[in-house]
């Protein structure tokens, strides 16, 4: 059961103390000494440590080139899809190191939405949503239909597309396409959803819809979002990670970071002195 924003004020993370919160929220993923880079280049991540709490939204912010996209792409090993990419360290999920798991299995538990909407051009709306299931051998129509509706509802797209499920996915507007991609990622029921600047190609209204739905779906799963937009981090996340030049500078409750940053560099960045 999801609750919409206007029915209930969003819980403000800063109202709970950090220690109490840490004790309550289970750790979904913990990153230890993660180093990553690309063929022939300088290391992009220089030993990142981070804990991502279950059923929260964690935002990763930082200036261009700081390694935030590399970091999030390491979390489901999409980083390795780039030839010559390297990753070293530990990413613990359910007690196992993600870097040693089969990436195919890992990615079913850790879904991803990309910067630009990327629906499959040959597939209809329904086929797009069901793709993760059908491509992995699920062909029972009833199961697929149910997964399609459920995922589209969770992605707040159902009402707009329920009458044209057989229309091509690429015929939707940019914002709808991105929500379609979110629905497609949700359909495989991941425990963690990664979003790599999901709104950077969208207008403010479409962005607002996606932010709302992120706040709703975090009741069921863990969300990690990379964003260029600090207001967006402030609006949707409980925790924020500030990255700079391949290092994690600061990590903590969003509310606290945006009001009383500990590190001088964080303060400079969020007040717009660079970046």
């Amino acid at each position: 059961m999801t609750t919409t924003m206007d029915m209930r004020p969003m819980p403000l993370p800063a109202e709970t103390t950090a220690s109490k919160d840490a004790a309550e929220a289970k750790i979904a993923m913990s990153v230890r000494n993660l180093k990553a880079g690309y063929a022939g280049g300088a290391p992009v991540l220089k030993g990142v440590n981070l804990e991502i709490r279950e059923k929260t939204v964690t935002a990763i912010i930082g200036p261009s080139g700081c390694g935030k996209s590399t970091l999030i792409r390491c979390l489901n090993r999409m980083h390795e899809a780039i030839p010559g990419a390297t990753a070293d360290g530990e990413i613990l999920i359910g007690g196992r190191n993600a870097l040693e798991l089969d990436p195919v299995v890992l990615r079913r538990a850790v879904g991803m939405v990309f910067q630009r909407p990327n629906p499959f051009p040959t597939m209809s709306i329904a086929q797009n949503v069901a793709a993760g299931l059908t491509l992995n051998g699920v062909h029972d129509r009833a199961i697929l239909a149910e997964a399609v509706e459920k995922s589209l509802r969770r992605a707040a797209l159902w009402d707009e597309v329920k009458d044209k499920l057989d229309a091509p996915g690429v015929g939707l507007s940019g914002g709808q396409q991105q929500r379609l991609c979110i629905a497609r990622a949700l359909a495989v029921e991941p425990a963690i959803l990664l979003l790599d600047e999901p709104c950077s190609a969208l207008d403010p209204i479409a962005t607002g819809r996606i932010e709302e739905l992120l706040i709703q779906i975090k009741e069921q799963l863990t969300v990690v979002i990379v964003t260029h937009n600090m207001q967006q981090a402030a609006r949707v996340s409980e925790y924020t990670v500030f990255m700079l030049m391949g290092e994690m500078v600061e990590y903590g409750l969003t509310r606290k970071m945006f009001t009383q940053p500990v590190d001088k560099r964080t303060e400079d960045y969020i007040t717009g002195r660079f970046g």
Binding site: R107, N118, G132, L135, V188
Partner: peptide
């Protein structure tokens, strides 16, 4: 490449991505 990434991120093995997503596209 984003189409390939989308399919890989769904936990689809690479050969299936190639034969069932990329090739039809």
């Amino acid at each position: 490449g984003t189409i390939r990434e989308a399919a890989l991120a769904l936990g689809v093995p690479r050969w299936k991505v190639t034969l069932m997503v990329i090739l039809p596209t």
